[in-house]
């Protein structure tokens, strides 16, 4: 499998090299939203004497920068890509090979992230300087962030694949994608850090998977959680990942029985 991944990575780097400008532009567009929220919360914080619910202006900046980095490292677009592949008949050649189509997506995902990570860090550094960010974390926040971001990336990836399998039944899954994106927007900590939203919204947020691949690693990276809470979050991420993997395996097997191999 290592040899397969090595060769897939080489091929994908060659393919991605031709779309590098496009990749960086996508990345730049993806950070507009957190920067807008950062600007809004900074204005609110400044108007209220420099703090909202215990979050200083610098804390907001640190949170949204962390959220931007986490968002980039956990992004997964497989549900959109998969629907396109099914409709265009491009899934069939992959299904004919003794390699699960998921592996191609892993490689594409990794290469995209690798391509765009450095430019993203530059932009984040500029935002950090502009908003006078200070990091108040401990060393173990950084240690905890490593498994947390890996679990978050895997969780976001697997959820995207679970959604993708709906294509086997529905052919078009734009509605589901949009619904999930909107739900994620509400409950993943994008509007505000989850500590600042009403209790009922916190309960929903921590009961759904979205926060576990966005707000949770972002708060850990910002240094905004206790060690106990951080470990608890890791357990939550692992549980959701386990559920997503089981759901995917089930949905994939059932979906293949429905697959009509249209267009191919």
């Amino acid at each position: 499998m290592i040899r397969i991944y090595r060769q897939l990575l080489i091929a994908q780097i060659q393919a991605a090299a031709q779309y590098r400008i496009q990749a960086v532009l996508w990345m730049l567009f993806s950070i507009i939203r957190p920067v807008i929220f950062l600007a809004a919360w900074t204005a609110v914080s400044n108007a209220q004497g420099g703090s909202v619910g215990g979050y200083t202006t610098s804390d907001f900046a640190a949170y949204y920068i962390a959220l931007t980095i986490v968002g980039q490292l956990t992004t997964a677009w497989n549900s959109f890509e998969f629907e396109f592949e099914v409709r265009q008949g491009r899934l069939s050649p992959k299904l004919l090979r003794p390699l699960h189509p998921l592996h191609y997506a892993v490689v594409e995902n990794l290469i995209w992230k690798a391509t765009t990570f450095l430019p993203l860090l530059v932009v984040c550094a500029l935002v950090a300087v502009t908003f006078h960010v200070e990091w108040h974390g401990e060393w173990w926040h950084l240690v905890l962030f490593v498994p947390s971001i890996l679990l978050a990336a895997a969780l976001a990836f697997m959820i995207a694949w679970v959604i993708a399998t709906a294509t086997f039944w529905l052919q078009r899954i734009n509605t589901i994608n949009t619904l999930l994106q909107r739900t994620g927007f509400m409950f993943a900590g994008q509007i505000a850090p989850l500590a600042l939203v009403p209790t009922w919204m916190q309960v929903i947020s921590y009961s759904l998977p979205f926060a576990y691949f966005l707000a949770v690693p972002a708060e850990i990276l910002r240094g905004g959680v206790t060690l106990e809470r951080g470990l608890l979050y890791l357990v939550g991420q692992a549980v959701w990942l386990g559920l997503a993997v089981v759901a995917f395996r089930f949905a994939w097997r059932a979906g293949l029985r429905e697959f009509s191999a249209v267009g191919a």
Binding site: R3, I4, R6, Q7, L8, I10, A11, Q14, A15, Q18, P93, L96, R97, P98, L99
Partner: peptide
Amino acid sequence: QLVWDIPAADSFLVLKEIY
């Protein structure tokens, strides 16, 4: 079944490993 953006020889190497 080939990747359009890269030469066939590179796709062949991927297939070699997959199979």
